[in-house]
Design a protein around this nucleic acid. Structure first.
Length: 785
DNA sequence: AAAAAACGCTTTTTT
DNA sequence: AGCGTTTTTT
């Protein structure tokens, strides 16, 4: 074994890595409570490496589950740098990826067609809408999103439609929709994310030999981010662990921030009971942050009850205090953040080493504005993913339909895109035929003889007796049937001609001959042509025709993306052994693809706190620390909502290595309205001595006088929230940052920055009323307070 | 069938 | 406000 493998591990890490020597039966399961920055991923990877190199465990016997594809990839990378041997045959991936793998291997036993396709949440939603329309469900009474959540939640609980408890008519109807939805998915041969898990779970439950096969194989099951698993995922793990296999779970209950979508922290306690775990190993040494940052995080999270209990510590020094900034408006807050970013950057901190974190995506806009006008490059995480883009979905729909012609969803998406004269009426007729005969739209479309299709209807299970009368069967008029026949012929042609082509070429061929490329090209005339044509009128067109330009740019972008799809396929073929179209489609569905250009470019990171989990930066800005925003208003209704918000704040704080800024605004534009807000209670949960205020701290009463139309209840609701600082007595001769000052015109403020020296000394002052201003000390009449 | 206007929603998000 | 979706208009 590589002797350096275990070197550098602290005692707890070491005991986690080398726990449960092979040969003991039953193998010892473990729960590793791993705090932020405690080397969790390292422990997990080293454990796998150790099992393989020292304990003669074959990679074949290992199942490793991660939360995201990115994490899986990274672990794979680290592992292959630790081990010389090849680790193929090891099952490593997300729950969904692994379940998909299992279902592909046993599609027959799972009752799925070999070419089953995966629906992403967008696909799922449109499927539900379509279904509800055909069932005549009122979308006002049953919002499709809610139905989608209902179905998703049910599946996460491991419940099929008939297993859901029904107490009221409202739920009864939703259950009916759920049942119809599952039937429709089955008919079309498509599977949603939840179904991947549930189907795989059912497969293992029902099929004893298969279950025993996998139980005999996966002697070691390792799970990352265990606090984010839901109930079904836990059941799935239990099923695979059986009586003999060891489950090695790593997680941090304080970082559980996905309860809102079914994650169940309770799984951690459940695990210790179900797997008889005697001692939970705690990794509490933090290798990331300076002391003050950790102290702040610890103080905050202490306010949560029912924690498993853990206190992070560091061997590092205390470092700087946390910098707090109160801005009059969200725009000024953004300006402050950007100014600080520039100064830090000037002082040598790379932009990539800084992050601006916020609670909700809507907050990014103001900050982006400020960054743009300051000319600072940045990268926003989140938003539309590559495989979710419209043009990519269109392209994939062609491929899906070619593979699995029963995929109604795909057919509907492209039957008239690009437009080929098949209108709403024709599609309705097709749908009538299809539903009357219980056949897919493709079957309805590909036959001129309705009688023929009756036979195929009988093949579907449970449909034997519903042969429709021929007289009832709707017919398609000759005119539209020609258009439809053309479409059918097109798809068949594409299928035939691409059958033996390598994947990228096949996709290219489909893009060309489906008319997609031509469609977007028509909207985006080649840039050169446009420029030449507009030689005299360039300026005019640019000013007057900017909407048209925007349209052209958009179309061009879509063309670029379609090209990128071919590149993605090329890359995929290089990276994967199984480079079939089916595998590529899986890849597209399961890895929504965050590939954004310029990953290496030096740019500030902008993201939600959720998106920041697992990352770290030299300097972190947490903005919008206002009651109602962070903690978010909506969390008030949710059970333990505030606790989850606090964990979110905990995650945010622990992202910072060296410097942390906390800021909030008195006024903020939200949903097109000005909101007045109070500082976040989370800020008050951080001990005062860790904070360094860049703006004057203000008394609560002063606060409220500050704002007109403040609807704050004046009664018991506004307690003494704000520890009032004693006004600072500053030596008048020396100006320094954080000093409170008075200006004749601008009033009271605080020095937040200084530049130059001697007669050229200029200070940046943040005034409570007038905002931030640069003042030359030689001219401005400043008085120290 | 495309363009314009009206409507409505708005926490977090991976698979 | 800003975005996506749906309805109405042309």
């Amino acid at each position: 074994m590589n002797p350096t493998l275990l070197s550098g591990l602290n005692p707890e890490q070491l005991s986690a890595v080398t726990l449960s020597p092979c040969g003991t039966l039953p193998s010892q399961s473990a729960l590793i409570l791993a705090g932020a920055g405690s080397g969790k991923t390292r422990v997990l990877t080293t454990r796998i490496a150790w099992l393989i190199s020292s304990e003669q465990v074959s990679p074949h016997e290992i199942l490793a589950v991660t939360f995201t594809n990115k994490a899986a990839k990274e672990m794979m990378m680290r592992l292959s740098s630790m081990l010389p041997i090849n680790i193929r045959g090891m099952w490593m991936g997300t729950f969904h990826g692994l379940c998909n793998r299992m279902l592909r291997a046993h599609y027959r036993e799972a009752g799925l067609p070999q070419t089953f396709q995966i629906l992403d949440s967008g696909d799922q939603l449109s499927m539900i809408k379509r279904l509800m329309k055909s069932l005549n469900v009122d979308e006002e009474k049953f919002p499709p999103r809610e139905v989608q959540n209902f179905i998703g939640n049910s599946k996460e609980q491991g419940l099929r439609a008939h297993e859901v408890e029904v107490f009221d008519p409202y739920t009864r109807r939703r259950v009916e929709i759920y049942a119809a939805y599952d039937e429709q998915c089955q008919r079309e041969g498509v599977v949603d994310f939840g179904e991947l898990l549930l189907r795989s779970h059912t497969l293992l439950t029902r099929n004893q030999s298969l279950r025993e096969h996998y139980q005999a194989r996966f002697r070691h099951i390792l799970v990352d981010e265990f606090q984010d698993t839901n109930k079904l995922q836990y059941q799935w793990l239990k099923l695979l662990a059986g009586e003999r296999n060891a489950l090695f779970a790593v997680g941090d209950d304080d970082q559980s921030i996905y309860a809102f979508r079914g994650a169940n922290v309770g799984n951690m306690q459940q695990l210790t009971r179900d797997f008889h775990i005697k001692n939970v190993i705690k990794l509490e040494q933090n290798y990331r942050s300076h002391g003050n940052i950790l102290t702040a995080a610890n103080a905050l999270i202490k306010n949560n009850r029912s924690r498993l209990g853990k206190n992070l510590w560091t061997a590092e020094n205390k470092g700087e205090p946390l910098r707090v900034y109160e801005a009059p408006t969200d725009a000024e807050e953004a300006k402050f953040i950007v100014d600080e970013i520039r100064h830090l950057n000037r002082d040598g901190v790379h932009l990539t080493e800084m992050a601006v974190l916020y609670r909700s995506n809507a907050q990014s806009r103001v900050i982006e504005h400020a960054l743009v006008s300051a000319g600072v490059s940045y990268r926003v995480y989140g938003g539309l993913r590559f495989y979710e883009r419209q043009e990519i979905k269109h392209a994939l729909a062609y491929l899906r339909l070619m593979q699995n012609s029963d995929d109604d969803q795909a057919l509907l998406r492209i039957i008239n895109f690009p437009t080929r004269g098949i209108g709403t009426r024709s599609i309705e007729q097709l749908q009538e035929i299809a539903s009357a005969q219980k056949i897919s739209l493709w079957q309805a479309a590909s036959s001129d003889h309705p009688t023929k299709n009756v036979a195929s209807a009988a093949q579907l299970p449970g449909m034997e007796t519903t042969q429709p009368q021929l007289a009832d069967v709707p017919k398609i008029s000759a005119k539209t049937s020609k258009g439809i026949a053309g479409f059918v012929a097109l798809i068949e042609m594409l299928r035939d001609t691409t059958r033996d082509l390598p994947l990228p070429e096949a996709i290219d061929h489909v893009l060309q001959h489906s008319g997609l490329i031509a469609h977007y090209q028509a909207e985006a005339p080649a840039a050169e042509t446009a420029n030449h044509a507009a030689s005299l009128t360039t300026r005019v067109t640019r000013l007057a025709a900017s909407p048209a330009n925007a349209k052209q740019r958009e179309a061009q972008e879509r063309l670029d993306n379609l090209n990128e799809l071919i590149n993605a396929a090329t890359l995929f073929v290089h990276e994967n052994e199984d480079d079939s179209l089916t595998e590529f489609m899986n890849h597209a569905a399961l890895e929504s693809g965050e590939r954004q250009a310029d990953t290496n470019a030096d740019a500030v990171h902008l993201m939600t706190v959720h998106a920041a989990k697992g990352l770290e930066f030299h300097s972190v800005f947490i903005g919008g620390l206002e009651e109602g925003l962070f903690p978010h208003q909506n969390s008030r209704n949710a059970e333990d909502g505030l606790a989850e918000e606090r964990r979110l704040m905990y995650v945010a704080i622990t992202r910072a290595r060296r410097r942390l800024y906390l800021s909030f605004a008195q006024r903020r534009m939200l949903h097109g309205q000005v909101n007045f807000s109070v500082v976040s209670s989370f800020l008050r949960e951080i001990p005062e001595e860790l904070l360094h205020w860049l703006t004057p701290r203000v008394e609560v009463s002063a606060y409220q006088n500050n704002r007109q139309n403040n609807h704050q209840p004046t009664s018991s609701k506004s307690p003494e929230i704000f520890p009032m600082p004693a006004p600072r007595a500053a030596g008048a001769s020396t100006w320094r940052i954080s000093q409170a000052v008075q200006h004749a015109k601008f009033g009271e403020g605080v020095i937040v920055n200084m530049e130059g020296s001697g007669a050229d000394l200029r200070v940046q002052v943040n005034f409570r009323q007038a905002g931030t201003k640069w003042l030359a000390l030689e001219y401005a009449k400043l008085t120290a307070l």
